[in-house]
Simulated assay, not measured.
Amino acid sequence: MAEKLRARDIMSGGVQCVGAHQSLFEAAKMMRDLDVGCLPICGDNNRLTGLVTDRDIVVKCCAEGIGPASVQAGSLNAKVQWIDAEADATEVLTTMEEHQIRRLPVIDVRSGHRLVGMITEANLAKNLSDEQVAEFASRVYATASMPGRSEG
């Protein structure tokens, strides 16, 4: 069944962006109001330029003693992984597993490269089989390095 599902079938739509020039304080308020832990960052052209998480705000801003009102969201831009809305569920899982990510923006390439949604672990759990979700979890979490443990 999952082979027939496309990214657009799995995603949550209606994703809101924080503007690259908006502050991390504004991003934090948006996250609170939308009850999400991550927001896409969109540039002046309304194209996806990055993602900001609640953890980013705490670790890269607050923990450094920097006020979130003084930092633009766009300063956190980094290479962001995304998926075409027409990609199949297998490609969604592969992309998330390979990059060990838990949130994946969905772009409608055919309609002007617009951000149309976000795929999260909750979306996977709702739309894929238990076996697929278990495989995803084992690949994303089991291979993550553990603090304080040496590899080898």
Rank of each mutant, 00 (worst) to 15 (best):
M1Q: 14
A2M: 14
A2I: 12
A2D: 11
E3C: 09
K4I: 10
R6V: 06
A7C: 07
D9V: 02
D9L: 05
I10N: 01
M11H: 05
M11W: 01
M11L: 05
M11V: 03
S12Q: 13
V15K: 06
Q16V: 13
C17R: 00
A20S: 15
H21C: 09
Q22C: 07
S23R: 06
L24G: 00
L24T: 05
L24Q: 07
A27R: 00
M30I: 09
M31P: 06
R32T: 13
L34T: 05
V36C: 12
P40F: 04
P40C: 10
P40H: 10
N45M: 06
R47E: 13
L48F: 04
L51V: 11
V52T: 11
V52K: 08
T53Q: 06
T53S: 15
D54H: 10
D56Y: 09
D56R: 09
D56S: 11
V58E: 01
K60H: 12
C62F: 10
A63G: 09
A63M: 13
A63C: 15
E64N: 13
G65E: 04
I66Q: 08
A69M: 07
V71G: 05
V71T: 10
Q72D: 06
Q72F: 07
G74M: 05
G74K: 08
G74T: 09
L76R: 04
L76I: 02
N77W: 01
N77R: 13
K79S: 14
K79F: 09
V80N: 04
I83Y: 06
D84Q: 07
A85K: 08
E86H: 12
D88N: 15
D88E: 12
A89Y: 03
T90K: 12
T90S: 11
T90M: 11
V92Y: 05
T94C: 10
T95I: 07
M96F: 05
M96G: 01
E98W: 04
H99P: 03
H99M: 09
H99Q: 12
I101E: 05
I101V: 10
R103Y: 02
L104D: 07
P105S: 08
V106N: 03
I107W: 01
V109I: 14
V109S: 07
V109W: 09
R110N: 13
S111F: 07
S111D: 15
H113C: 10
R114N: 07
V116H: 02
G117V: 04
T120M: 06
E121Y: 03
N123F: 00
A125R: 14
A125P: 03
K126S: 12
K126L: 14
N127S: 15
N127Y: 11
D130W: 03
F136A: 01
S138F: 11
S138Y: 06
S138R: 15
V140E: 01
Y141H: 11
Y141C: 09
Y141D: 08
A142L: 11
T143C: 01
T143G: 08
T143P: 00
A144D: 10
M146W: 08
G148M: 00
R149M: 13
R149W: 08
E151S: 14
